[in-house]
Protein backbone atom coordinates (compact mmCIF):
# COMPACT_ATOMS: atom_id res chain seq x y z
CA UNK A 1 0.00 0.00 0.00
CA UNK A 2 1.47 3.32 -0.96
CA UNK A 3 1.50 6.44 1.17
CA UNK A 4 -1.51 7.98 -0.54
CA UNK A 5 -3.74 4.98 0.05
CA UNK A 6 -2.54 4.82 3.66
CA UNK A 7 -3.35 8.50 4.19
CA UNK A 8 -6.70 8.05 2.47
CA UNK A 9 -7.78 5.18 4.71
CA UNK A 10 -6.43 6.80 7.89
CA UNK A 11 -8.34 10.00 7.24
CA UNK A 12 -11.41 8.12 6.05
CA UNK A 13 -11.53 6.37 9.42
CA UNK A 14 -11.01 9.71 11.16
CA UNK A 15 -13.81 11.37 9.19
CA UNK A 16 -16.33 8.58 9.70
CA UNK A 17 -15.43 8.20 13.37
CA UNK A 18 -15.72 11.91 14.07
CA UNK A 19 -18.96 12.13 12.10
CA UNK A 20 -20.35 9.34 14.28
CA UNK A 21 -19.25 11.18 17.44
CA UNK A 22 -20.82 14.35 16.07
CA UNK A 23 -24.17 12.65 15.54
CA UNK A 24 -24.29 10.50 18.65
CA UNK A 25 -22.69 12.78 21.23
CA UNK A 26 -25.04 14.16 23.86
CA UNK A 27 -22.87 17.21 24.41
CA UNK A 28 -23.28 19.75 21.65
CA UNK A 29 -19.80 21.23 22.12
CA UNK A 30 -18.30 17.79 21.64
CA UNK A 31 -20.35 17.54 18.46
CA UNK A 32 -18.96 20.85 17.27
CA UNK A 33 -15.35 19.81 17.85
CA UNK A 34 -15.99 16.44 16.19
CA UNK A 35 -17.35 18.42 13.24
CA UNK A 36 -14.02 20.27 13.13
CA UNK A 37 -12.13 17.01 12.62
CA UNK A 38 -14.63 15.83 10.02
CA UNK A 39 -14.27 19.04 8.01
CA UNK A 40 -10.49 19.07 8.44
CA UNK A 41 -10.33 15.48 7.23
CA UNK A 42 -12.29 16.44 4.13
CA UNK A 43 -9.74 19.18 3.50
CA UNK A 44 -7.03 16.51 3.60
CA UNK A 45 -8.99 14.53 0.99
CA UNK A 46 -9.05 17.54 -1.32
CA UNK A 47 -5.33 18.00 -0.78
CA UNK A 48 -4.75 14.33 -1.65
CA UNK A 49 -6.61 14.93 -4.92
CA UNK A 50 -4.25 17.84 -5.76
CA UNK A 51 -7.08 20.33 -5.27
CA UNK A 52 -4.99 22.58 -3.02
CA UNK A 53 -7.17 25.62 -3.41
CA UNK A 54 -10.35 23.76 -2.52
CA UNK A 55 -8.62 22.16 0.49
CA UNK A 56 -7.45 25.51 1.83
CA UNK A 57 -10.83 27.12 1.19
CA UNK A 58 -12.49 24.24 3.03
CA UNK A 59 -10.23 24.90 6.03
CA UNK A 60 -10.71 28.65 5.96
CA UNK A 61 -14.46 28.73 5.41
CA UNK A 62 -15.62 25.73 7.40
CA UNK A 63 -13.07 25.34 10.20
CA UNK A 64 -12.04 28.99 10.56
CA UNK A 65 -15.42 30.55 9.87
CA UNK A 66 -18.47 28.37 10.24
CA UNK A 67 -17.19 26.24 13.09
CA UNK A 68 -16.21 29.30 15.13
CA UNK A 69 -19.67 30.70 14.41
CA UNK A 70 -21.32 27.47 15.60
CA UNK A 71 -19.27 27.51 18.80
CA UNK A 72 -20.11 31.17 19.36
CA UNK A 73 -23.77 30.50 18.69
CA UNK A 74 -23.87 27.64 21.18
CA UNK A 75 -21.96 29.52 23.85
CA UNK A 76 -23.83 32.80 23.49
CA UNK A 77 -27.35 31.43 23.24
CA UNK A 78 -27.25 29.06 26.22
CA UNK A 79 -28.19 30.58 29.55
CA UNK A 80 -25.22 29.56 31.65
CA UNK A 81 -21.83 28.98 30.13
CA UNK A 82 -21.23 25.82 32.02
CA UNK A 83 -24.49 23.92 31.85
CA UNK A 84 -23.76 20.84 29.89
CA UNK A 85 -25.59 21.62 26.71
CA UNK A 86 -27.57 18.47 26.12
CA UNK A 87 -29.13 17.39 22.90
CA UNK A 88 -32.47 15.61 22.87
CA UNK A 89 -34.07 13.24 20.44
CA UNK A 90 -37.26 14.72 19.04
CA UNK A 91 -39.56 13.83 16.13
CA UNK A 92 -38.33 10.28 16.09
CA UNK A 93 -40.72 8.92 13.45
CA UNK A 94 -40.31 11.63 10.72
CA UNK A 95 -36.58 11.67 11.29
CA UNK A 96 -36.35 7.92 10.85
CA UNK A 97 -38.42 8.02 7.66
CA UNK A 98 -36.32 10.82 6.15
CA UNK A 99 -33.07 9.16 7.15
CA UNK A 100 -34.25 5.89 5.61
CA UNK A 101 -35.24 7.62 2.35
CA UNK A 102 -31.94 9.46 2.11
CA UNK A 103 -30.02 6.30 2.98
CA UNK A 104 -31.78 4.31 0.27
CA UNK A 105 -31.18 7.07 -2.25
CA UNK A 106 -27.48 7.25 -1.40
CA UNK A 107 -27.07 3.49 -1.66
CA UNK A 108 -28.95 3.49 -4.96
CA UNK A 109 -26.75 6.26 -6.35
CA UNK A 110 -23.62 4.49 -5.12
CA UNK A 111 -24.62 1.24 -6.77
CA UNK A 112 -25.90 2.70 -10.04
CA UNK A 113 -23.00 5.08 -10.72
CA UNK A 114 -20.25 3.94 -13.00
CA UNK A 115 -17.18 4.85 -10.92
CA UNK A 116 -14.26 5.65 -13.18
CA UNK A 117 -10.89 6.43 -11.68
CA UNK A 118 -8.90 9.12 -13.42
CA UNK A 119 -5.16 8.96 -12.89
CA UNK A 120 -3.91 11.95 -10.91
CA UNK A 121 -1.69 14.46 -12.62
CA UNK A 122 1.08 15.58 -10.33
CA UNK A 123 1.60 19.24 -9.45
CA UNK A 124 -1.04 20.76 -11.68
CA UNK A 125 -1.48 24.48 -10.97
CA UNK A 126 -5.16 25.01 -10.29
CA UNK A 127 -5.15 28.53 -8.97
CA UNK A 128 -4.45 30.56 -12.13
CA UNK A 129 -6.98 28.66 -14.21
CA UNK A 130 -9.55 29.00 -11.48
CA UNK A 131 -9.07 32.77 -11.29
CA UNK A 132 -9.32 33.17 -15.06
CA UNK A 133 -12.48 31.07 -15.24
CA UNK A 134 -14.07 33.04 -12.40
CA UNK A 135 -13.46 36.33 -14.18
CA UNK A 136 -14.47 35.16 -17.67
CA UNK A 137 -16.89 32.24 -18.08
CA UNK A 138 -18.33 32.32 -14.58
CA UNK A 139 -18.41 36.08 -14.16
CA UNK A 140 -22.17 36.30 -13.59
CA UNK A 141 -22.50 33.57 -10.92
CA UNK A 142 -19.40 35.01 -9.21
CA UNK A 143 -20.87 38.52 -9.08
CA UNK A 144 -24.32 37.27 -8.05
CA UNK A 145 -22.74 35.34 -5.16
CA UNK A 146 -20.90 38.49 -4.13
CA UNK A 147 -24.12 40.52 -4.17
CA UNK A 148 -25.89 37.79 -2.20
CA UNK A 149 -23.20 37.83 0.47
CA UNK A 150 -23.31 41.62 0.61
CA UNK A 151 -27.08 41.47 1.13
CA UNK A 152 -26.58 38.91 3.88
CA UNK A 153 -24.08 41.18 5.62
CA UNK A 154 -26.39 44.21 5.37
CA UNK A 155 -29.29 42.12 6.65
CA UNK A 156 -27.23 40.84 9.59
CA UNK A 157 -26.16 44.37 10.51
CA UNK A 158 -29.75 45.56 10.28
CA UNK A 159 -31.00 42.75 12.51
CA UNK A 160 -28.22 43.26 15.03
CA UNK A 161 -28.78 47.01 15.17
CA UNK A 162 -32.54 46.81 15.67
CA UNK A 163 -32.44 44.97 18.98
CA UNK A 164 -30.54 47.80 20.61
CA UNK A 165 -31.51 51.40 21.50
CA UNK A 166 -30.11 53.77 18.86
CA UNK A 167 -27.36 55.49 20.85
CA UNK A 168 -26.46 55.64 24.49
CA UNK A 169 -25.73 59.35 24.55
CA UNK A 170 -26.85 59.98 28.13
CA UNK A 171 -24.65 57.25 29.53
CA UNK A 172 -21.17 58.38 30.59
CA UNK A 173 -18.32 56.88 28.71
CA UNK A 174 -17.03 53.72 30.41
CA UNK A 175 -13.80 54.29 32.23
CA UNK A 176 -10.75 52.28 31.37
CA UNK A 177 -10.04 49.48 33.79
CA UNK A 178 -6.90 49.51 35.90
CA UNK A 179 -3.98 48.64 33.74
CA UNK A 180 -1.06 46.65 34.97
CA UNK A 181 1.82 45.28 33.08
CA UNK A 182 2.87 41.74 32.58
CA UNK A 183 5.33 40.05 34.91
Amino acid sequence: MDLFALAFYAFAILIVGCAAIMVFSKNIIHSAFALMFTLGGLAVFYALLYAGFVAVTQLLVYVGGILVLILFGVMLTTQGYFDKVQTRTVNLLPATIFAAIIGILLIFVYLSTDWTLNPLEDGEVTLTGLGELLLTDFMLPFQVTGVLLLLAIIGAVLMAARTRPPLQASQPAPKAGPESQKE
Binding site: I29, F33, M36, G40, G52, F53, V56, T57, L59, L60, V63, G64, G65, L67, V68, L71, M75, F82, V125, T126, L127, T128
Partner: peptide
Protein backbone atom coordinates in the same frame (compact mmCIF):
# COMPACT_ATOMS: atom_id res chain seq x y z
CA UNK B 1 6.03 24.72 -3.10
CA UNK B 2 2.22 24.84 -3.03
CA UNK B 3 0.79 27.52 -5.29
CA UNK B 4 -1.65 28.71 -2.60
CA UNK B 5 1.11 29.42 -0.05
CA UNK B 6 -0.06 32.61 1.67
CA UNK B 7 -3.70 31.58 1.52
CA UNK B 8 -2.76 28.30 3.19
CA UNK B 9 -0.99 30.13 6.02
CA UNK B 10 -4.06 32.30 6.63
CA UNK B 11 -6.35 29.27 6.61
CA UNK B 12 -4.31 26.96 8.82
CA UNK B 13 -3.74 29.58 11.51
CA UNK B 14 -7.51 29.84 11.90
CA UNK B 15 -7.26 26.43 13.59
CA UNK B 16 -5.43 28.28 16.33
CA UNK B 17 -8.50 30.19 17.42
CA UNK B 18 -10.55 26.99 17.42
CA UNK B 19 -8.00 25.29 19.65
CA UNK B 20 -8.02 28.27 22.00
CA UNK B 21 -11.82 28.07 22.26
CA UNK B 22 -11.34 24.37 22.96
CA UNK B 23 -8.87 25.13 25.76
CA UNK B 24 -11.09 27.83 27.21
CA UNK B 25 -14.25 25.79 27.17
CA UNK B 26 -12.66 22.56 28.39
CA UNK B 27 -11.04 24.32 31.38
CA UNK B 28 -14.50 24.96 32.81
Amino acid sequence: MIDVGVFYIVAITSLLSVSIIMAGWASN
